[in-house]
């Protein structure tokens, strides 16, 4: 048990914090701790979780990506237009197109990073401006409201009325999110390629000397994030029932904050899918709870910012010193 807590300290801490917040909120509001609310939360967090697991893969491989959210917007827009041309399409063709566009945009980042040795933050800040500038230029900032019916129709996979009268619903975004989370988990923990990504992020030079294909690592990591961005983009269009070219602008930093809160390390080699999902959920739960508690919506972000700042400060200020059971075997053994 001790070793499980030790090796998953971040996830454990997040769970504790989530539990504490939930208890406080459920005492102060009636509607927080209801199944209906829980599933609402899951529905509304789906897109961010999809982005987050994608970004996690890039962070593990030692990179960072600022451009994925606008790439998702590009994927959304291109998909909406292409679907119009081919006369409707369906979820399969939609996901293929959106995912494909996302992978292409991610691969372009990887190309710049690998071929010209541009560090990822510089390369993706450049592509962030290129993708967003071109999207706004070509679309003239015009939104698309006329989407195919299948895309805007709410797909409810399971619904039930609870005893307290609230409805629980599992909608399509949750399904897609679950698939993305599981796929990412399998990919990074259960395949050789995934473990090579960890190794590459942990010690790039060492990985190279042991025959890891560096180019492949970059393309796979940024390609995976591109895929998730494309899928997330389409799901967001479904959820919002419209395609607004700057709707996702700025989302990249919020997702980054959540992923890092979940224990991923800037610099590579560290991070888990569970932590990443908990990081997103912690933020959504706080926001949702504050909402239900009647706090002004304008105050949410401030409180969330303060929580993240506090979390980062605490997690970096030598927790081991304060909690002896978490002390690691350091120095000479």
């Amino acid at each position: 048990m001790r070793s499980i807590i030790q090796s998953h300290a971040t996830e454990f801490a997040l769970l504790v914090v989530i539990a504490v917040i939930s208890v406080v909120l459920s005492l102060s509001t009636d509607s927080f701790l209801t199944p209906g609310n829980a599933f609402d939360l899951l529905n509304s967090s789906s897109v961010n979780i999809i982005f987050a697991v994608g970004l996690l893969v890039v962070l593990i491989a030692g990179g960072i990506d600022i451009s994925f959210a606008v790439a998702a917007s590009v994927a959304q827009y291109v998909t909406a237009i292409l679907l119009g041309w081919i006369g409707g399409g369906g979820w399969i063709s939609g996901l293929l197109i959106a995912g494909g566009v996302g992978v292409l945009l991610g691969a372009f980042n990887a190309f710049l990073i690998h071929k010209f040795r541009i560090i990822s933050i510089v390369a993706t800040i450049a592509t962030f401006n290129i993708y967003f500038g071109l999207l706004m230029f070509f679309t003239r900032g015009v939104s698309i409201y006329n989407l195919p019916d299948w895309l805007t129709e709410r797909v409810i996979l399971y619904e039930r009325e609870m005893a307290d009268g609230s409805w629980i619903e599992i909608t399509l975004p949750v399904l897609v999110m679950t698939i993305c989370v599981i796929a990412t988990w399998i990919f990074i923990t259960r395949t050789t390629t995934g473990r090579q990504l960890y190794a590459f992020g942990d010690n790039p030079d060492g990985a190279r000397r042991f025959g890891v294909n560096i180019a492949a690592m970059q393309f796979i990591a940024f390609g995976w994030l591109g895929l998730m961005a494309g899928i997330g983009g389409l799901v967001q269009a479904h959820y919002a029932q419209e395609v607004v070219p700057n709707a996702l602008y700025g989302r990249e930093l919020d997702v980054l904050a959540a992923v890092v809160l979940g224990g991923a390390r800037l610099g590579g080699g560290k991070g888990t899918v569970l932590g990443c999902v908990l990081g997103v959920l912690l933020i959504s739960i706080t926001q949702n709870g504050l909402n239900l508690a009647g706090v002004s919506p304008f105050a949410f972000k401030m409180i969330i910012g303060a929580i993240i700042l506090a979390a980062i400060t605490l997690s970096n200020s030598n927790l081991e010193k304060r909690l002896p059971f978490m002390r690691q075997a350091k120095g000479r053994g």
Partner: peptide, 20 residues
């Protein structure tokens, strides 16, 4: 702590504060 993280959370906090 990594400056990106610290300033990012400060950014989220200040944005929230300003909007509030």
């Amino acid at each position: 702590a990594h400056p990106i993280l610290v300033s990012l959370s400060m950014m989220i906090f200040l944005r929230g504060l300003g909007e509030f």
